[in-house]
Design a protein around this nucleic acid. Sequence first.
RNA 1: GGUCUGGUAGCUCAGUUGGAUAGAGCAACAGCCUUCUAAGCUGUGGGUCAUUGGUUCGAAUCCAAUCCAGAUCACCA
Length: 592
Amino acid sequence: MSVSFELKSITATAIKELYQVDISSENIQVNETKPEFEGDYTVVLFAFVKQLKQSPDAVGNAIGNYLKTHFSNLVKDFNIIKGFLNIVVQGGFWLDFLNENATNTNYGFRPVKQDKVMIEYSSPNTNKPLHLGHLRNNFLGWSIAEILKEQGNTVYKTCVVNDRGIHICKSMIAWEKFAEGKTPETEGVKGDHFVGDYYVKFNDEYKKQVKELEEKGLSTEQAEKDAPIMVEAQDMLLKWEQGDQKVHDLWATMNDWVYKGFDETYKEIGSDFDKTYYEHNTYLLGKDWVDKGLQSGVFFAKEDGSVWIDLTEDGLDQKLVRRKDGTSVYITQDIGLADLKVQEFGIDRNIYVVGDEQNYHFKVLKLICQKLGIPSADGMYHLSYGMVELPTGKMKSREGTVVDADDLVAGMLRIAAEKTAELGKVDGFEASELDKLYNIIGLGALKFFLLRVDPKKRMIFNPEESIDFHGFTGPFVQYTHARIKSILRKTEGENNNAAISDDLLPLEKKLTVSLEQYPTVISESAQAMDPSGIAIYVFNLAKTFNQFYAELSIANAESPEKKALRLQIATLTATTIQRAMHLLGIEVPERM
RNA sequence: GGUCUGGUAGCUCAGUUGGAUAGAGCAACAGCCUUCUAAGCUGUGGGUCAUUGGUUCGAAUCCAAUCCAGAUCACCA
């Protein structure tokens, strides 16, 4: 149990003993004491002085004295300032903590939950390559999966590939018209980019045709509908749905090109999946649920035969679930897929990492699944994240203003290589080791940049300014780890047991207190489905270590006891950095 | 128009269920490498927490209204 949790609990005990008043420990506020005051943790007294009918000073004194006498193993001393009860934790407590955890290479792993959780993330369309927005999605999904695993859950990562539909047909039509038999192999272009280029070509041609029709006097709306290339794409979609062999062959070929490209990108950025669903296999799911819903009265039919659900009582609108011609809409297959996931994996929780533009959709989906009684419907959660925008506004693939994922990653690796070369600290590295290092640093900077902000907030990325390698960044944290490892290499095998000594110095204390909070940070991040708390935490931990490092010598400490103590602190800091960064999908180097 | 987000330093962002004098990084300026890796450390300047009102011992945080930005409300996916 964490110190702050323990303090809440014993404060509740004290209040009960002293005043015979029950206050739940959750309602007691314990903060870290501000640096300008004496103490480690602070109990905020205002919250219950009214209930106890005494002044903050009186209450604080009573509680402080009670804790000091009855919990002397934890509480050493206290002081009260303006309604804040500052508590000094026994120095021995911190030493015990270090002795127990310093060599624990699994520090932070706490199996407190045993749910089966599915996390759907990435879910690309197969008509164009991945871009910066996908990167945010991929990094978030992967990180949340690791965070939930760290809490003991069993996690299945899944990807739903949107491999059918009008957007694919657009690329296909453009390829038929303009490619003259070219392939990714003949052109030496990555498959997803190759297909994406034809998607762009489609839109160029489409725009041209619309303009021509408009000049002939058609309305914009009519021109958009009548443009020959669009008509051809629609026609191709129809043929695909009818199972036309030639169309299916082309579709399969072009999708394969894209998959190959995606696989490369996923490998590069570290995304992986336990199960991949393809939309061409799932888009017909959910039809039986519409019938069941009609029978049970969850859905209702209108006169024209279309099927709806009325969500007005839930504050939403009426929503269509089956067209009058009997065909499915998008949400129908989501219902079916949600059910399929439960059948195949027996999941308790079903998390979707999808952009916030679909907030409404997922609200509806969850309500429908709950009303239909699909198992685990209550465990459905839309991990909604904000769009990544450019200073000029939204990225638009049709207008070529997207930041391409592969380009961005390549750029990050190049910058990592340049900076590393400038600093010249990696003498003796072999070429393969250097490549590995650039990869660790470049991707570390990128992932940290995207994960350090609250997922639900929109974020702005300026391609003109490269992502930083100093300050609140991945490389800063990685560098701190490398520094520690350098010391640990030199002191390997030395006595690593801190003898009992007097009080810790301020920076020794600050680091230790911070280390002790790590498991709590993980559970808060898991609870909030938000990796940014971990990024902020690990940055602050690294920063504190660097202060410690600048002020105190570890290898040449003033006494053997101090050296042992600081080695413990350094060891646990390295472990914590490594594990916390891993939860963000970021590796840390031994040297850099 | 309805619903939902968001608005904090020049820029990018933190700020736990309301708590002490609102914090980081970047950028700017001034210092620190003969001593464990300077991708580091120390210091300085920088704020009407969008606006107005309310709730109370106390509000960036809760409530209401207003302004601004975005998303969404398709027999599209």
